[in-house]
Design a protein around this nucleic acid. Structure first.
Length: 472
RNA sequence: GGCGCGUUAGUCUAGUGGUUAGGACGCCGGCCUCUCACGUCGGCAACACGGGUUCAACUCCCGUACGUGCUACCA
């Protein structure tokens, strides 16, 4: 069987990290099995549609490196890939259902439905449609349809139960008595998710539906639709939810959920992907760092787990740091430049500073702030300990000797600096903190920071002398 | 309320009847001729509870609790 998967978001805002993970799993499964990965836009709810949402979705996916084979801007014979452009198809199929008595027109007003719902809540009953229009004859229904507004509902068996297998959950069974006569076509003529989804998945030849757990409860409706239409249903895999820290469903309230937010904050796409793939899936051994290519190789549906996972930003931070350090220097320099705004610094000089920062970054947005240590022209020593150290007697001795020694070198590199410090230690007998800290403080004003090699080399001979002289 | 699904450390997870319950993040500590970070080494920390089944249950069954999803003319 040919493997075809799909990601089917609705254009109601930005791409959500949970959506990204769903897209990723679908993508990985398709690529792993040399199948196709499709993007379909589910825009049947005109009230929730947001301008620019589709462009945003496409753009986010692109930035994350997830490429689809068919979809918007990649239309082919199975398209169009916007549900709003496929209404004829849905109507054709629902007509069949109507004729076969598998669906029926419902003329109930939303007022009546609202009242019904209220009563059911009050009486503690199941919240279901009461079937008032269920047995209107087809002829009468056709007649009334000419003058009255209506919806079309799925005729769900009144008793019995449905059993099915989910690739993630295993065997699941649900009583039909629990399943509502779902509306298939809304009074505005547009289909609901349930109808459109099944029809599209069938005609787009989807072999595996990999989607969020929130759909598990409505799977009976979908399966029933496949059965009524005499179609072979695809395989299903319902993914565990992504959760907030308090274990509720991941939401905007408790932090960022848009993929763009994370990108803007300086998380690398590869790191975000790597982090997300591990929320609900594992390779079966202790490895944690994976490139997209490796993931394609390793991914299996069988290793997706059942329980929801908390989106732990601390681990994302760690992983992003890993990815930054893993970058080779040239790619790192190139990436870093996107995140900083510096003027009048020569490239190789800037690179020295950047390199010293590389092991210290969590997010790319950290760079600008950390770079200040190098770019600031003036500073005051505010730390009390630093003041103490800089005014010690041994400090004067060390600094004097330091100036003397760098005066007689032509180029002050990190290596030369190490040699000089060695000599100073031997000559003055000062060592450890008392030897090194004076240089650091004189150069930066701080007690903490990157390795001195880089700082010394960055400033060069003249600037070293200038800064150190002030403290003798 | 009903129904579905889930439950190994604070978090992500490995584990499929007999293990000193493994790894990762975080946290704590040692080391890395200055600091902080990186790295490295080590440490703390978990099978929700109660019944079964079995010579033996984290593992199988039932129940309870808790969490979560659905119960829309939203997806």
């Amino acid at each position: 069987m040919d493997i075809v998967t799909r990601f089917a978001p609705s254009p109601t805002g930005y791409l959500h990290v949970g959506g990204l993970r769903t897209a990723l799993y679908n993508y990985l499964y398709a690529r792993k099995n040399k199948g196709k990965f499709i993007l379909r836009i589910e825009d049947t709810d005109r009230t929730r549609y947001q301008e620019g949402a589709v462009e945003n979705l496409l753009n986010s996916l692109k930035l994350m490196g997830i490429e689809y084979d068919s979809g918007p801007e990649k239309e082919d014979e199975n398209g169009p890939y916007f549900q709003s452009k496929r209404t004829d198809l849905y109507n054709k199929e629902v007509d069949k259902l109507l004729k076969d008595g598998k669906a029926y027109r419902c003329f109930c007003t939303s007022e009546r439905l609202g009242k019904l719902h209220e009563e059911q809540i009050k009486n503690g009953k199941d919240f279901k449609y009461d079937g008032k229009c269920r047995n209107i004859s087809l002829e009468k229904s056709e007649e009334r349809a000419k003058t009255e507004p209506f919806t079309i509902r799925l005729k769900v068996p009144e008793s019995g139960q449905i059993k099915f297998k989910d690739k993630v959950r295993g065997k699941v069974k649900i009583d039909y008595s629990q399943v509502n006569d779902q509306i298939l076509i809304k009074s505005d003529g547009f289909p609901t998710y349930h109808l459109a989804n099944v029809v599209d998945d069938h005609y787009m030849k989807i072999s595996h539906v990999i989607r969020g757990e929130e759909w598990l409860s409505s799977l009976p409706k979908h399966l029933l639709l496949y059965h009524y239409l005499d179609w072979k249903p695809p395989k299903f895999a319902h993914l565990p939810l992504l959760l907030n820290e308090d274990r509720s469903k991941l939401s905007k309230r408790q932090g960022d959920v848009a993929v763009k937010d994370y990108l803007n904050k300086g998380y690398l796409p590869a790191a975000l992907l790597n982090f997300l793939v591990l929320l609900g899936w594992n390779p079966g051994d202790n490895r944690e760092i994976f490139s997209l290519k490796q993931l394609i190789n390793e991914f299996t549906l069988e290793r997706i787990n059942k329980s929801g996972s908390v989106f732990d930003i601390k681990k994302l931070d760690w992983m992003n740091g890993q990815y930054i350090r893993k970058l080779d220097d040239d790619s790192y320099f190139e990436e870093a430049r996107k995140w900083i705004d510096v003027k009048n610094i020569k490239e190789d000089k800037l690179n020295i500073a950047l390199k010293s920062l590389k092991p210290r970054l969590i997010k790319m947005t950290d760079i600008q702030e950390k770079l200040k240590l190098f770019t600031q022209k003036k500073f005051k020593i505010v730390n009390e300990d630093a003041k103490k150290i800089i005014s010690m007697n041994s400090t004067k001795v060390v600094l004097k000797s330091y100036i003397q020694k760098i005066n007689s070198t032509d180029r002050l590199t990190g290596k030369v600096f190490q040699k000089i410090m060695n000599e100073i230690q031997k000559e003055t007998g000062v060592k450890g903190k008392n030897l090194w800290m004076p240089i650091r403080i004189a150069l930066t004003g701080e007690m903490h920071g990157p390795e001195l090699d880089y700082i010394v080399e960055y400033f060069g001979k003249e600037e070293n002398i200038k800064r150190v002289r002030k403290h003798i």
